[in-house]
Amino acid sequence: MPRFAANLSMLYTEHGFLDRFAAAAADGFEAVEYLFPYAWPAAELATRLRDHGLQQVLFNAPPGDWDAGERGLACLPGRQGEFRRGLHQALDTAMALDCPRVHLMAGLAPSGTDRARLKDIYLANLSWAAAEAASAGRDVLIEPINTRDIPGYFLNRQDEAHRIVEAVGAPNLKVQMDLYHCQIVEGDVTTKLRQYLPTGRVGHLQIAGVPDRHEPDQGELAHGHLFDVIDATGWQGWIGCEYRPAAGTSAGLGWWRRRR
């Protein structure tokens, strides 16, 4: 059966952030993920994880100025130094939280900039980051994101993400495959799971109902079927529950309770 991690940036928002760890554990989650840990001391987060018997399985490296609309640095010209400093900050935090993987957001493609130039920067940054992360015993991930939620995002398709991972050639650089984004951009999710999970290049999955990003038992994707497909491939990773509850987190977990 797939293993599910609560995304604390989207779930349990009826609680303050630090109280979401307890809420997730009370509902039976054994793992958590979230966007960013940097607003809180790592020691405090580690205590919350330990006190509630939770594993930290994913968070993002610093994305630039999030509040100003930036969505990552990895492909951006002239930001390589900031990208490197952020990666080191993320790896230090990952060590403190015993988190095995960090997502590196690609960023928004600057208007008028040649895409080939951005790809060269992206590949160079990812190659460097993978080597740094390997020294720390961590994986780094890239995620295709749909252009409806983040217009202009550099990386949108699964096939492109896998070509990039293959081009870099680092065993600890993997794809974060979000089925919500995949369905919006490409569809054919069952086939893509069967195609990509056996490669070993998928390091993490995420789910949400399509099109409204609510619970995965809502919308156009048959997640029960997709979970069976994931099981059939033998994939053993975590699935992040990165959705916005329609009416309260705990009340909306019927899809998961039926699966347990």
Rank of each mutant, 00 (worst) to 15 (best):
Y180F: 15
V57G: 03
A170V: 10
M177S: 05
Y153F: 15
H225W: 10
A46P: 01
I239P: 00
L253W: 01
L91R: 00
P77R: 01
L123E: 09
T147F: 04
F83M: 14
D212W: 06
V32P: 11
A90R: 00
E82T: 14
H181C: 09
E186K: 04
Y34T: 10
D212Y: 08
R258N: 15
L76W: 00
Y38C: 08
L197V: 09
T147Q: 11
R244A: 11
Q56F: 01
A26Q: 14
P62K: 01
P245L: 11
F227G: 04
G78I: 10
Q56P: 08
F36I: 12
A42S: 14
P37F: 03
S111C: 09
E186I: 10
D98F: 01
A161K: 00
V202G: 02
A131H: 08
M177L: 15
N125Q: 07
L49H: 07
R115L: 13
D139M: 06
H214V: 12
R117A: 15
D67G: 08
Q158M: 15
I145S: 02
Y38V: 06
L123D: 03
D178I: 12
R157V: 14
L179C: 09
L108N: 05
L226K: 01
G152E: 07
Y243H: 01
V102E: 03
L45K: 05
G69K: 02
R194T: 14
A232R: 09
T191S: 15
H162N: 10
Q176I: 12
L197D: 02
Q158K: 00
H204G: 07
H214Y: 06
M177N: 02
M10Q: 07
I207A: 01
H181I: 12
W238E: 03
C75F: 00
E14K: 00
D139T: 09
Q55N: 14
V185R: 09
H88M: 14
A208F: 02
M95H: 13
H88C: 10
M1L: 12
E220T: 12
E70T: 05
R117Y: 10
M95Y: 02
G224R: 11
F36N: 11
G72N: 04
Y12T: 07
